[in-house]
Amino acid sequence: MTQTTSEPAAVPRAADDDAAISVRGLQVRYGDFDAVRGIDLDVRRGEIFALLGTNGAGKTTTLEVLEGFGSRVGGTVSVLGIDPARDRAALRPRMGVQLQEGGFVDELTVQETLQLWQRLVERPDRPERLLERFELTGRRDVAVTRLSGGEKRRLDLAMAVWGSPELVILDEPTTGLDPESRRRTWDAIQELQEAGRTVVLTTHYLEEAEALADRVAIMHEGRIAVSGTLAAIVAAQPAGFSATVSDGAGALPAVSGAVEREGDHVRVRTEDLQGDLTAFLGWAADRGVRLSDLRAAPASLADIYHGVRTGSEQS
């Protein structure tokens, strides 16, 4: 797990061959508002990297810089070895982008949209393949304006993966989708990875990051609060156990973790799950205290996400 600061790194680390994206000390400002406050980011080739965060956390702004659309006031950015602000033309043929919303000419049909895209994108591909892959064949002659939200997202994804680019950037690819459509979108994203492509996506959905991402970063208020592999992030966080104790239990045992008690419900967050749980069970056995709803679990991404948000609110 890495904790970043608002200060940009003094000496940018050279991008190695394994890095699809390397960002050091990125800062973006809109007028007086600091949208991104000095973040570091590394995405390896062939991995799926998820950028999590609430609305306004700076995710889309960060993506726009990677895509070469946003301008930065500080930091260095390397995408496939190219600075997108300096040479977007070299990056364009190697990168596919899904916008967060819109971007369609509403009057065009699905088929016309893909046919136009075929003429506009250097990477070769066929509209029929994408129509079939994203289950839009039956809607090919329908104007984009008449598509459902889910169908539009699928068409959007089809355009992003057109010609199977080296790097695919997806901005909230499943927002507004029903569970089945979301599952199918996940399959398509995983197919990209199996084909050796690198995928960077933003999402509000923790389960999406858990299902897809090799590594994640959680952004909050323009900074990266936590980043790394899911396993490493979770392992570095305190695990917890909880139980409802029977009446008259009296004082709880001394444990190394943090204890929260609301009425008869007890919750302990600890870095020594085994030791504290043993002490707790021993205490209950000695006193004849009945424990109902006893549960023990490692920290979840939801706990960490919640912790990032509440930690910031309290500071």
């Binding site: 043929p93 819109g102 971007g103 369609f104 994108v121």
Partner: peptide
């Protein structure tokens, strides 16, 4: 409608 932005993600300059 963000069509300009979309077109910038194509191979057009």
């Amino acid at each position: 409608t963000r069509v300009l932005k979309r077109m910038r993600t194509s191979s057009l300059s």
